[in-house]
Design a protein around this nucleic acid. Structure first.
Lengths: 137, 137
DNA sequence: CCTTGAGTCTGTAGTTACTACAGACCCTAT
DNA sequence: ATAGGGTCTGTAGTAACTACAGACTCAAGG
């Protein structure tokens, strides 16, 4: 049995393949309460269905967009309770966007210093180096 | 006794204050071999001098520039052996610069998606939200 | 001299978000 | 019946710190 045979009753590997998620990560998300505890077969195997696929995709997309697990937990709690409003979700998104922009600014600052310093290097087989001077100064 | 009294024989807190480094981080860097094991007083207190200040500043500046511990370990090994050349250091720096640029590109991609999606939000007290749709799609 | 408070010592646990085992089951196909 | 996969559990490892508990040491005040 598997994914393509019956259309329901996905095993863990099936869910992983459908979502592109790592096999172990699924168990991890369950453990930390991001994914619900799925029903089990008599012998203890997890059984998933399309709702699990949807939820896992939600989490994975959120992670791709740089949301932390805690941020996603907040989002999912709103959704799970059915109490979310566009205003709330937008506020969380914009907070996250601000964090992303701060990280970009930080990395750009770093990039400038690195590029400027490396540009001063002779690149020769000599021990003295502007990069080391910049670090040791 | 302390930092300002004798000019030598810094204790751990003195080194921390002079470099802005967290107290515990100093011990951590020692443990992972980034800082040398310092001499000790008879009762076991670590005793630092200016060479330790220089080395710790080197590490901290490198970290500020986003070098990983392993990257800095490579740099420091060259310096410790006195075998570094500007060419080698420049190569390591440019590799790191490429990594930084890749991270910036990644974050910019994320920023675009977040900004575009959030811009579609009505921001009203309604349950439907473009952000949730983007995640659940 | 003794106490008190601050500093230091050690080892260990917590953080984030996974990833990768080991050793025991289970299930299916030959 | 058995061989091979897949699955189960719990645990340890990753990066780079940070924070504690409990014991010890040290200098200054009374």
């Amino acid at each position: 049995m598997g994914d393509h045979v019956s259309g329901k009753g996905l095993k863990r590997a099936d869910l992983a393949r459908r979502t592109g998620c790592n096999l172990e990560t699924i168990r991890y998300y369950e453990k930390i309460g991001m994914m619900p505890d799925p029903p089990r077969t008599a012998s203890g195997y997890r059984v998933y269905d399309v709702t699990h696929v949807g939820r896992l995709r939600f989490i994975l997309r959120g992670r791709e967009l740089g949301f932390s697990i805690e941020e996603l937990r907040g989002l999912l709690q709103l959704v799970d309770r059915g109490t979310q409003t566009c205003a709330e979700v937008k506020a969380l998104t914009e907070q996250h966007l601000a964090d992303v922009r701060a990280k970009i600014a930080d990395l750009k600052r770093i990039e400038k210093v690195l590029a400027a310093t490396a540009a001063q290097c002779s690149g020769k087989q000599v021990p003295e180096c502007p990069v080391l001077e910049a670090l040791a100064s």
